[in-house]
Design a protein around this nucleic acid. Structure first.
Lengths: 211, 211
DNA sequence: CGCCGTCTCTCTCTAAAGAGCGACCTTGAG
DNA sequence: CTCAAGGTCGCTCTTTAGAGAGAGACGGCG
């Protein structure tokens, strides 16, 4: 916790791929000004590790077993509202990124980022400066103005993506088929899609759903 | 090229994520019996690296820019039919795995595999022994007996996944709507799906298409 | 050679999807 | 209180999807 005072940034890594953890650890530990103090392989471990070590920076994979990135961000910020979290993800289309950032994550970066970018992102976040990658910044702008789906619509969308019919969706949500259609219609409009299948494609690209 | 004679397995890494390359490199170079001789960040580099270094083992990510894993496997085996290739992928549902293996790749493994498994896979492949992970072996058995899609059907499926209507698909492929329907119908039957949207979901799970 | 798989096309018919309406109720922000 | 938004339900209408069944053309293979 006092690592920063000694001039070294303490880092906790959370990623379900041992390979990625090794890679990050190797990169970080080669730097004079930072060190890895713990690693976690899933969401629950990540929370436990954070609580135990109170690192300067928590590097967090968005997709993990047990609890996904969004849930971990929430929980960690409950523990320490000043926590500095750097989100790391493979997919630049992930809607969850924005959810994390708006919840208080200090930055994100893509896994295909070059070494230098990853390291400077960690340094930025450790100093409480938000890190903004160009690719995702562009996405954020694109997303501006675009209508967001309601919770109910997301539920329906998930079922649509599984290939359910309107009637089936209605049954599962205990509503009438007409209402299901209304929701689907709203989804199509908001996603600017002509058919439900296209809606699924668009939603998947935007990371609204995970197949 | 003669690395094996000196008792060290020479390895070339091909992955578009610097983090993963670093992780693998760190793992491999910590071992006394193997070393990384080159790294590649995309498919073309991978081929070039292989040709230049002729490593004992080529560790290859299935999804890469420029050329994907399948294409690289083909090309490398053209260069050296005895090439020992270890496929590495994130998704265990990838249909491409089977394509690679049937083309002559010696093994595959998932990125979330533990260190030991990764290392023993490299050793196995270096000795020309096929490496078979339990999870994928199970998939292979599941796939047995299941009907495979024809090339034409894959084309249609791709368009279906993009949300196109039968009429639209017909126009793009220069066939009649009736024929498009016939193909879609065949796809639904083979994938055991009720609707086109479900077919897309199933196909995506199996890695037949990449959205 | 004949068989089989693939691709192509045609037809009918039913079920589902989607467009375009209006309407009611609740909840929360102003 | 008013107004907006979300969820619910209802209606009609046209278009699309999907089941089912048949058939011709082509190429590979035993």
């Amino acid at each position: 916790m006092a690592a920063e005072l000694r001039g070294r940034i303490s880092v906790v890594l959370a990623d379900d791929h041992p390979v990625v953890r090794d890679g990050l650890a190797a990169m970080v530990n080669q730097q004079a000004d930072m060190e890895v103090v713990a690693e976690a392989g899933d969401g629950e471990q990540a929370i436990a590790c954070y609580e135990q070590h109170r690192p300067d920076v928590l590097v967090l994979d968005l997709r993990m077993p047990k609890r996904d990135g969004v849930a971990v961000v929430q929980r960690v910020l409950e523990i320490n509202p000043k926590a500095r979290i750097l989100i790391m993800t493979t997919y630049d289309g992930d809607e969850d990124i924005f959810q994390c950032l708006s919840q208080g994550a200090k930055g994100y970066l893509l896994k295909d980022a070059p070494r230098q970018e990853i390291l400077s992102a960690i340094r930025a976040v450790s100093e409480d400066r938000p890190y903004t990658s160009t690719t995702v910044a562009a996405k954020a702008l694109q997303r501006m103005g675009k209508p967001s789906l309601t919770q109910r619509e997301l539920n329906v969308l998930q079922l649509v993506a599984e290939g359910r019919s309107n009637k089936d969706i209605a049954r599962r949500l205990s509503i009438t088929e007409g209402t299901a259609k209304t929701h689907v219609k709203a989804i199509l409009t908001k996603l600017d899609a002509i058919s439900r299948t296209e809606a699924v494609a668009v939603a998947h690209k935007r990371g609204l759903i995970h197949l």
